[in-house]
Amino acid sequence: MCSLKGRNDSVTKTDRRIIRTKNEIKQAFFSLLSEKNFEAITVRNITERANINRGTFYLHYVDKYNLLEQYENEIFEKFNAILDETTILVIDINQFKQERLPVMTQILHVFYEEADSLKLILGPNGDPFYYEKMRQFFVRYFNAYLGNLTDKSKWKFPIELTLAYNSNAILGVITYWLQHDIQQSPEEVATMLIETILKGTLEASGMRSIIEKESELGR
């Protein structure tokens, strides 16, 4: 009779094989995505690059769309887990940086860890709809805080426009950061994003003081 330990060891080995095979398939897929458009990639291309047969591919994925969808969902699961663990206890806008910076830093670490794959998906060969999915995530990121500001009627501009502006600005910076081989740390980019949201571009970048000094000299 097979022992419980023996069965557990067998399951562990099987799980490891599945993980290894799926990683090989994903590596092959992203290697191809660096060379050509997603629509031009076939399952045959993927299996040949991964050195597996088609049957093995179909054990794990329905088609190439399912492969991409599973990966994209894995990323959102990580993002959503970060937000789900976040509790906003105060509504004072002065606490925004203190509360939001650690969350933004965690999110950027996910981008950092998955940079090679995400820059391809968000690039010209990738999924044209993924950018909008990402943008909607950052709308949720802001709503996690703004939801506590009950009197939204006092805002100078419609909140929908504010959310659209901030979510597009953040994702634009992150996409640029990925496409240019991550010259800054996640902590540096997170700080820049949060300070720009709080202070505006001119003040956060230091340009306001430069403009004011030049204006005084010109008088």
Rank of each mutant, 00 (worst) to 15 (best):
L202C: 02
Q27M: 07
L32C: 05
E195Y: 06
T191N: 11
R16Q: 14
T105L: 13
E216Y: 03
Y176S: 10
I182S: 05
S117Y: 07
E113Q: 15
M1T: 07
N168C: 06
T47I: 15
Q106M: 07
Y141K: 14
K119D: 06
L161F: 08
E187R: 03
R208C: 00
D9K: 13
E212C: 00
M134D: 01
G126W: 08
E24I: 13
F138E: 11
D116Q: 15
R135W: 01
R100Q: 12
Q179V: 04
N8H: 02
A50D: 07
L202I: 00
G200K: 02
F76V: 02
Q184G: 00
E203F: 00
I211Q: 03
G147Y: 07
C2D: 10
N168R: 15
L101W: 01
L198I: 15
H60G: 05
A144I: 07
P158N: 05
T162K: 10
K13Q: 12
V139P: 00
L59Q: 14
E72S: 03
S167H: 02
P186E: 05
N125G: 00
N80R: 14
E77G: 02
T56F: 03
D9M: 12
L33W: 12
G200E: 06
M192F: 13
G147R: 12
K36T: 03
T86H: 06
N166D: 02
V11F: 11
I182D: 04
V90L: 09
E85H: 07
R135T: 05
M207V: 05
E160G: 01
F57R: 13
T175E: 09
T201P: 00
N73C: 02
N53C: 06
D92G: 02
T196I: 07
F142Y: 15
L120E: 10
T12A: 15
E35Y: 09
L4D: 01
I88E: 08
M1R: 08
I19Q: 07
N168D: 10
T56R: 10
A164L: 13
A50C: 04
F142R: 11
E188T: 14
I121S: 02
K213Y: 02
Y141R: 14
E187V: 14
N66E: 10
R208M: 01
N94E: 08
K133V: 01
F38V: 14
E35H: 12
A204F: 04
E72T: 08
Y130T: 04
W155P: 00
A169D: 03
K64S: 07
K133C: 01
